[in-house]
């Protein structure tokens, strides 16, 4: 119990952000036409690639002077994260490009 209270207090600001983001996410998405469900899912999926920031921090402060499992896994994490970000945004754009074209 004590741990939970300590956790809440020391993370109170991020927790505020988190709770408000939940409402924001729900608000932004409701009323989206089903036409856009697939691109929206794909775009949101690319945003969840923010984990790449974590990967950059990890590898950024890693010790490069010796070869370690941690280093390999960190680079792998970054590689996966970049795939998610680059592929995700590119594929969403490709889908949306087709919606655009036939508007003329």
């Amino acid at each position: 119990m004590e741990e939970i209270i300590v956790f809440f207090y020391s993370f109170r600001e991020p927790i505020f952000i988190m709770v408000l983001s939940i409402f924001l996410g729900i608000e932004v998405i409701s009323n989206v036409p089903s036409v856009l469900h697939t691109p929206l899912m794909s775009g949101a999926n690319a945003i969840s690639g923010v984990i790449i920031i974590g990967g950059i921090i990890l590898v950024g402060h890693a010790d490069l002077s010796r070869f370690s499992l941690e280093l390999i896994l960190g680079i792998l994490a970054m590689l996966f994260g970049t795939l998610n970000v680059a592929g995700g945004f590119a594929v969403t754009d490709r889908m949306l490009e087709m919606f655009k074209k036939k508007k003329k």
Binding site: F11, E13, P14, I17, M18, S21, I22, F23, L24, G25, I26, V28, I29, S30, H37, L40, M41, A44, N45, I47, S48, G49, V50, I51, I53, G54, I57
Partner: peptide, 30 residues
């Protein structure tokens, strides 16, 4: 999205928390 937000807590990185939870909430609604 939620997993990325959890990592955001480790780094006290608000952009990660917001981005992750935003996707988490939007995905749940969808």
């Amino acid at each position: 999205g939620i997993a990325a937000a959890m990592a955001g807590f480790i780094y006290h990185n608000l952009a990660m928390i917001l981005g992750g939870i935003l996707v988490g909430a939007a995905g749940s609604i969808l």
